[in-house]
Write a protein that binds this DNA or RNA. Structure first.
Length: 493
RNA sequence: AGGGCGUUGGGCAAGUGGUUAAGCCAAUGGAUUCUCAUUCCAUGAUCGCGGGUUCAAUUCCCGUACGCCCUCCCA
């Protein structure tokens, strides 16, 4: 019988969910679901100083928003709880006591200051920084003396002298470390709380994790953890160290990096869709077999294969994300699209909070004009700008606009069109469109020379959606005012 | 400084001991269109560098450069 696959995403609540976190969570999730196994979320909150208020909540909230579901965690419980490390202190105690009793660990009375100085000395002499092992063989008298001083010890793991630690990484292949490159590391801090490297091992064992998929930055922690597994006589899980995600400068994405939008919440606020983000993030450091790039969550579950995790760093390509999100927006149901975009216009003060049915309908039509080209929700504000800018007569024209209006034909076209528009008793794209043809016949102008003058004067911009519909939505009043104002100015000049 | 890992066109990325070295994004050029957008077509890599193994290497081995990660009483 094969063991049930169990994997976990183990965030520390030191911040909100960012791209890197999300990627790790997604891969674990896909791996578990693909194998029909369990996906667990465990909160690693042993660094109380760095924990931030709301961090844990935010992690779960945005994971859920992205479409992940988990089988065990702080919020829904499970058979292997508690799932918050600070609630597992008693459990850890039993295990580190065991290591102490068996001589795998010892008490270290060095102060942080002493250690820091030691490190700096080593660096200054060009040596590899690392703990010297000073407290490895303390006599009972020395210990008593330290205790009498009121010093509180940390617990350090006694790293074996001359041992090769190796493992088969699902991504990197065979990886080897030598124990002499690892110095005795702290497993329990002065305050009695275990460190990450210790707690992970105990938890992963107790929670029966079969695989550990995590970021590559953990690869050098792995030998430490393996030594702990061995000290306990436990079988270590299979490791998979995923590529880092790097920014445009090829640096690891860090929470403090401002060159890139990091947090899932920010993407949500900008109007990125969870499906698109999920899709995009999954393609960071992993690739499917064929040529397709757009996949649903269920398709990913079916396809996911850890063999195809890539070894080299993935760069976060914002423009591709925008493209991908645009693909999802294009396929979105119209109602959803409208519901997503309108709030951005309201927030920008361009639309009233409370709208009449007519206003709603108008806004809907405006917004729908851009459905195919919108990359993300917030972009609607700039894209639809021409429907909210009520300037009658532009005073400053761009070079192109000047060129468009300077032609002799421009005024003819404009006055002819203006006259036709005024004769209209209704105002819809359907009745406006034929008028352009009428003007075409009358002035013998067509194409660029026909449309552009009208567009520039009536809409105030040389770019925009289909002219007749744009004019309809701009409204009769505004369009006529603009044309009149322009023509009048032409005459006075 | 030590250890680990990586290196395929601007970005992502597939792939193989002998191929025209996929595909996507971006860029540029072109076609269509009143413009933007859309759509379509086109354009670009001697696979970091040097050596070796081999009839043959981007693919295997060694070295080197560069990059990144770790070396914390952070995770």
């Amino acid at each position: 019988m094969t063991e049930e696959v169990r994997v976990r995403y183990a965030p520390s609540p030191t911040g909100f969910l960012h791209i890197g976190n999300a990627r790790t969570a997604i891969f674990n999730y896909l791996f578990a679901r693909h194998a029909g196994g369990k996906f667990v979320i465990r909160i690693e909150d042993t660094d109380q100083k760095r924990n931030v208020e709301g961090g844990e909540e935010s992690q779960l909230k945005f994971l859920k928003w992205l479409g992940l579901e988990w089988d065990e965690s702080v919020d829904i419980g499970g058979a292997f709880g508690p799932y918050r490390q600070m609630e597992r202190l008693d459990i850890y105690k039993k295990y580190y006591q065991e290591l102490l009793d068996k001589g795998f660990a010892y008490k270290c009375y060095c102060t942080p200051e002493e250690l820091k100085e030691e490190r700096e000395q080593q660096m200054a002499h060009g040596q590899t920084p690392g703990y010297s092992g000073k407290c490895r063989h303390l006599t009972p008298e020395q210990i008593a003396a330290f205790e009498a001083e009121g010093r509180k010890p940390t617990l350090r793991f006694r790293v074996p002298e001359d041992e090769t630690i190796e493992f088969n990484d699902m991504v990197k292949g065979h990886v080897t470390f030598h124990s002499s490159d690892v110095s005795d590391f702290v497993i329990v801090k002065q305050n009695g709380v275990p460190t990450y490297n210790f707690a992970v091992v105990v938890d992963d064992h107790l929670m029966k994790m079969t695989h550990v998929l995590r970021g590559e930055e953990h690869i050098s922690n792995t030998p430490k953890q393996i030594m702990l597994f061995h000290a306990f006589g436990w079988q270590e899980p299979t490791f998979a160290h995923m590529t880092l995600i790097v920014n445009e400068n090829h640096k690891k994405l860090s929470k403090r990096d401002n060159s890139i939008v990091q947090f899932i919440e920010q993407y949500k606020n900008m109007g990125f869709l969870p499906e698109a983000l999920f899709n995009f993030i999954t393609l960071l450091g992993w690739s499917p077999k064929g040529e397709e790039e757009i996949f649903s969550r269920d398709e990913f579950i079916k396809l996911f294969d850890a063999e195809r995790l890539s070894k080299s760093p993935a760069m976060f390509d914002k423009s591709k994300l925008e493209w991908m999100n645009g693909q999802y927006i294009t396929k979105m149901p119209e109602d959803d699209y409208v519901a997503m975009t309108i709030p951005y216009l309201v927030n920008a003060g361009l639309l009233p909070q409370e709208m009449t049915d007519a206003q709603k309908d108008w806004a809907r039509r405006v917004v729908l004009l851009y459905k195919e080209q919108l990359h993300y929700g917030a972009e609607i504000v700039q894209l639809s700008d021409m429907f909210f800018n009520k300037t009658i007569l532009k005073t400053e024209l761009t070079k192109d606009e000047e060129k468009i209006l300077s032609g002799e034909q421009a005024s003819d076209v404009l006055s002819a069109f203006n006259r036709e528009l005024k004769a209209l008793d209704s105002w819809t794209a359907e009745v406006i469109a034929p008028l352009i043809k009428v003007v075409q016949k009358e002035t013998k102008q067509r194409g660029w020379k026909l449309y552009m003058p009208i567009r520039v004067v009536a809409t105030g911009s040389q770019h925009g959606p289909e002219l007749p519909e744009a004019l309809e939505l701009l409204g009769r009043d505004l369009v006529l005012k603009r044309m009149d104002a322009y023509l009048e100015k032409q005459q006075t000049v």
